[in-house]
Design a binder for these strands. Structure first.
Lengths: 144, 144
DNA sequence: GTACGATAGTTAGAGTTCTAATGCGTGTCA
DNA sequence: TGACACGCATTAGAACTCTAACTATCGTAC
């Protein structure tokens, strides 16, 4: 099967280009793409557990653990024990984390807007629908 | 900007699902996705240099170096000095490598066919065109 | 009241990926 | 012929990612 006929090839290329662009946009803020993703979900759901955050970001718990460890070393987040459920660590942005997040988000949104600007509303919806179909098929085949 | 409106989110999800599916398909052969990608291009261009292989796979030379090192340790490839250009190492599949590649490719193609089967010819072309537009926009903005 | 299942968190190990920097070899150009 | 630019290969360091395995805690079911 020739490479250019493989949908996976094109999907991978697009995701790599996106990653490269986001990485460049986030570098000034000192964040990596996964770090930014974690902070983004964290800003919208303060106090979320690491496992829930991992699910939201689509990674495994050990992966999120590494990301959070790096963020904590930079002083961007803090993790405190849950009030009564002692096995849960509540994760929250620090003031510094919220500030870094704000500037990083501005740059990330700029990339997203630039990308979105390359399509009409209809094309954008089509692309999202087709990508959703990819996910559906791939995850369906996984369990079958 | 809400997460579900971000094209990047959907792109990432689709690529993750693809990667998970391919990884599961390649596990029986003992290969990772990048290793398979390298072997695939290597099978089509025997004797290619590591740098050229890196470009074909869309990764940096040090990354390809790591992948090749692992493949070499498994005895799937061999690297010999170039005939007259002494700073180039020609990379080739070993017999064992070609055999592993054959079985792995069968599984990988099965995933690709399954994914392709979720779309009509027209949809497939639309998806590829839209993804190409993503790459174009993202790489264009990068240099601007 | 105890045992079990589900969930959260973590550690260990292997692999991929990047940037930055270095050394080597070839070819070109003055 | 000598200097410089270019490309290949490699090393070092940091970060992300996975699977596998383990521990701890809570809630429930017997």
């Amino acid at each position: 099967m020739p490479v250019p006929e493989r949908l996976g090839f094109h999907l991978k290329r697009a995701e790599q280009a996106l990653n490269a662009a986001k990485n460049a946009a986030l570098r000034p803020a000192g964040l990596t793409v996964p770090q930014y993703a974690a902070l983004l979900h964290l800003a919208q759901s303060p106090g979320i557990s690491a496992a829930a955050l991992a699910r939201a970001c689509g990674v495994t718990p050990p992966t999120m653990n590494t990301v959070l460890k790096n963020l904590q070393e930079q002083g961007l987040i803090e993790r405190t024990p849950h009030e009564w459920h002692k096995n849960i660590l509540e994760t929250r942005l620090t003031a510094k984390g919220a500030q870094v997040m704000a500037t990083a988000d501005a740059n990330a949104v700029r990339v997203e807007r630039g990308l979105a600007g390359a399509f009409s509303d209809e094309e954008r919806e089509t692309l999202i629908a087709l990508l959703a179909r990819c996910v559906e098929q791939l995850e369906g085949a996984r369990s079958a």
